[in-house]
Simulated assay, not measured.
Amino acid sequence: MSAPSHPATDGPPAGDRAPDDSSRTFRLDVAVIEVAAVAVTFVMMLHITANALLRSFADRPMPNTLEIVQYWYLPIVAFLGFVAAQHRGQHIAADLLFERLPEAARRPVLAVVLAACCALAAGFAWFGWQEALHAYEIRKTAGVSDLPAWPTYFLVPLAFAGLTAQFAAAAVRAAVRPVAEHAAADPDEAAVLRELSAAENKEARS
C-alpha cells in the first residue's frame, strides 16, 4: 500500500509523539502478530538450512521444501507483516506532495486518501474470500505435490479485512483531528522533515 505517511497508526498522531518514541503504543494483538511472523521466519530459516545440508551431505533433501516455503511460510510472513506495518506506519509512502499542501487542505486530502485505501483493501478482502472458498472447495494443493495449500488462502481476506479496519479508523481520525505539521509516522523521518522545514524558513527570512 502506498499512501501519504500519516498519523494513521493505532495510537496518537505522529506530531504528538516524542521524536525518539519508535515503539509506538503497545498493543497485545499487534505484538502477537509480530512475534508470530518472527517465529515463522525463524522456522523457515531452519527448514531451508536443514534441507540444504541434507541435500548436500546426505543426498536426502526434505520433501516439498520449495512448496512449503512458497505456499505456507512466505504468505504467513507477508500478510502478517502487512497488518503490523500499517499499525507502525511503516508502509512505503510518498510525502513530497502532501508536505507541500496548505495546512487547510491536509486533513481532507488525508481523509480521502485513507478512505480510498480502505475501499481498495475491502475489495481485496472480498475477492480474497471468494478465492479462499474456491481453494477450499477444490482442496487446492501446492503445485503438483499433495501438500495442502488451501488454508493459507484464507490469510488474504483476513489480512485485508484487518487493513480495511485500520484504514477506516485512520480515515476517521484524519477527518476529525488536526493533521500534525509533519505527517510522517516514522520519528526519524519526521525529525528530518522538521529540520528541512526549519532550514527553508531560515533561508526564506534571510
Results as ranks from 00 to 15, higher is better:
204 A>Y: 11
30 V>Y: 13
194 R>C: 09
51 N>I: 04
193 L>I: 11
105 A>N: 14
170 A>T: 03
118 C>H: 05
77 V>N: 05
63 P>A: 04
185 A>F: 13
149 A>H: 00
181 E>Q: 10
119 A>Y: 00
42 F>N: 10
147 L>Y: 06
49 T>I: 10
44 M>N: 11
135 A>C: 08
63 P>I: 00
186 D>V: 07
44 M>I: 00
143 G>S: 03
140 K>L: 15
139 R>G: 12
179 V>S: 08
52 A>N: 12
39 A>F: 10
120 L>F: 11
77 V>P: 05
67 E>M: 06
183 A>K: 03
187 P>F: 01
171 A>E: 02
160 F>K: 02
121 A>C: 08
142 A>W: 01
36 A>V: 09
72 W>Y: 09
131 E>T: 14
102 P>A: 02
42 F>P: 07
46 L>M: 12
174 A>D: 00
17 R>Q: 05
165 A>N: 08
17 R>A: 01
152 T>L: 06
36 A>L: 13
69 V>D: 07
101 L>G: 03
134 H>F: 14
68 I>A: 14
109 V>P: 09
39 A>M: 08
177 R>W: 10
7 P>A: 15
24 R>N: 13
164 T>W: 03
62 M>K: 02
179 V>D: 03
122 A>V: 06
144 V>T: 15
71 Y>T: 05
110 L>M: 11
46 L>T: 11
166 Q>A: 09
160 F>D: 01
118 C>S: 08
7 P>V: 00
36 A>H: 06
117 C>Y: 06
24 R>T: 10
159 A>Y: 02
12 P>L: 15
154 F>C: 00
77 V>R: 00
198 A>G: 03
39 A>N: 00
138 I>S: 06
128 G>S: 04
176 V>E: 06
146 D>V: 11
2 S>H: 12
99 E>A: 13
166 Q>N: 07
177 R>K: 13
88 R>M: 05
107 R>G: 03
198 A>R: 08
52 A>W: 08
61 P>I: 01
148 P>G: 01
186 D>A: 07
12 P>T: 14
167 F>Y: 09
79 F>A: 03
196 L>A: 10
139 R>P: 05
25 T>D: 15
30 V>T: 13
79 F>M: 06
183 A>Y: 07
140 K>W: 13
136 Y>R: 13
189 E>Y: 09
25 T>P: 08
177 R>S: 12
33 I>K: 08
84 A>H: 05
92 I>L: 14
23 S>A: 15
86 Q>F: 12
11 G>M: 03
78 A>V: 14
187 P>H: 03
108 P>W: 05
156 V>C: 01
196 L>C: 12
202 K>Q: 13
27 R>W: 08
21 D>K: 03
171 A>S: 05
118 C>Q: 07
119 A>D: 06
160 F>R: 00
149 A>L: 01
